[in-house]
Design a protein around this nucleic acid. Sequence first.
DNA 1: AATCTTACTTGCGAAATGCAAGTGAAAATG
DNA 2: CATTTTCACTTGCATTTCGCAAGTAAGATT
Lengths: 143, 143
Amino acid sequence: MPKRRASPKWRSGCPLNASVEILGDRWSLLIIRDMMLRGFRSYKEFLESYEGIATNILADRLQKLIAHGIITTEPDPSDGRKLIYSLTAKGIDLAPVLTEMVLWAAAHEETDNRPLVLQMQKDKEQFLAAIRHRWAEQTARST
Amino acid sequence: MPKRRASPKWRSGCPLNASVEILGDRWSLLIIRDMMLRGFRSYKEFLESYEGIATNILADRLQKLIAHGIITTEPDPSDGRKLIYSLTAKGIDLAPVLTEMVLWAAAHEETDNRPLVLQMQKDKEQFLAAIRHRWAEQTARST
DNA sequence: AATCTTACTTGCGAAATGCAAGTGAAAATG
DNA sequence: CATTTTCACTTGCATTTCGCAAGTAAGATT
C-alpha cells in the first residue's frame, strides 16, 4: 500500500476541518450516498442520478475521492469500457455521517423518502449494521 | 414567525441533498463548530478562528445560516456595535452531524484535539447531552 | 464495417472564493 | 469633547471553481 503524505496539509488540525476540506462541497456526499444506499457502481449511474451532476464535476470528484482513499476502482471483467467503483472501509465509515445528515434535514426541511427516514429513526444502529453488512458481502465477493 | 417558503427548491427531495445544499461548503460547519463547541458568539471571534475565513465570506455565510434558520442575531445590550450570534434549535440539532464528522476524520486522518475526540468516543450520548444542556442554559438566559 | 456505449476531456461563460482596502457607527481614550 | 479604536461589515478585483455543451478514444454491439 502506497503512503499518501504528499500535501495533506489542512488549514487546521481540527478533525471537523479535515472532514469539511474532504467532503465540504455540493456533490461528494451525494456520490457516496448513491454508492452506499443505492448500490451505484458505475460512472453512468452517478451521472444519471437525481440531482444531475455535470460530467466534468463528476470526474473530478471521483478522482478526489480516490485520492482520499474513500473509493477505489477496478476494471469490469465483463465489459472493458467500464470501471467498477467501490467504497473502501474509510468510505463505508461515512455511513453515520450520512445518516445524521439525513435525519437532520428530515427533521427540519421538507423532504421526501419517508421510508428511509423512518427506518433510520426506528433503529439507527441496526440500519447502520445493515449497510455495513451489505458492504462487507460485496467487498468479500469482489476480492 | 415569518414563513420561509421563498425559493427552497432543492435539486431533489432527498434529505441528504437538502443537507448538502445548506451545509455543503468549506466554512458553514466550522462557524457552527465555533458556536457549539467553543462558545463563539461574535463576528470578530469567527474571523479570528483557526482556519482564517475571509471577512466577506464570513458575512455571506452568516447571512445564509440566518436565512436557513440555523442561527439568529440580537444586539449586544452592553455594546451597540456588536451583534450576538446564537444557534437556534435547528442549529443545535446539528450536533450529531458534527460529532460523526469529527469521529470519522479522527479515525481516518491525522488530526489534533485528542481530548475532544476521546470524550466523544467514550460516551457519545452524554457528550451530546452536555452540548444540548449548555445551549438550553444560554438560550434561557438570553430570552 | 458501422454504430453505439462508456468514461471521460476540453472550451468557455458565469458564479464563487480570497485578499486587500475601505466605510460608518459606536465605544474608548486623552 | 475631539481623536483614535474597535466592530461589523462592503467594495473591488484577480483567481479559482462550477456548469453546460460539445468533443474523443477505446471497447462493445449490430
